[in-house]
């Protein structure tokens, strides 16, 4: 699963710290998400999508061979 968080964050002119505060996580979590080193929970994915005002599938790119 890939994501476009970095792209959207730049588009909305938000820092990692600001985005972390908006979704109530640590900045570290945003760093790991942007590096694709962490798969968020459905709740966090939903919160992030809501901050950017886009559907989840636009923010997170699911691939057919993603592990279950």
């Amino acid at each position: 699963m890939n994501n476009r968080i970095k792209e959207f964050r730049a588009r909305f002119n938000l820092t990692q710290d600001e985005l972390a505060r908006k979704v109530n996580v640590r900045r570290e979590t945003i760093v790991f998400l942007e590096k694709n080193k962490y798969n968020p929970s459905l709740k966090l994915a939903h919160d992030l999508a809501r901050v950017f005002g886009v559907p989840i599938e636009e923010l997170f790119v699911f691939e057919d061979n993603d592990p279950k």
Binding site: D17, A20, R21, N24, V25, R26, R27, E28, T29, F32, Y38, P40, S41, K43, L44
Partner: peptide, 16 residues
Amino acid sequence: KSANRGEPPKDEMSKK
């Protein structure tokens, strides 16, 4: 540092 920045001490990633 986290406390100074006002971050939550634990979040879903740190718990994981």
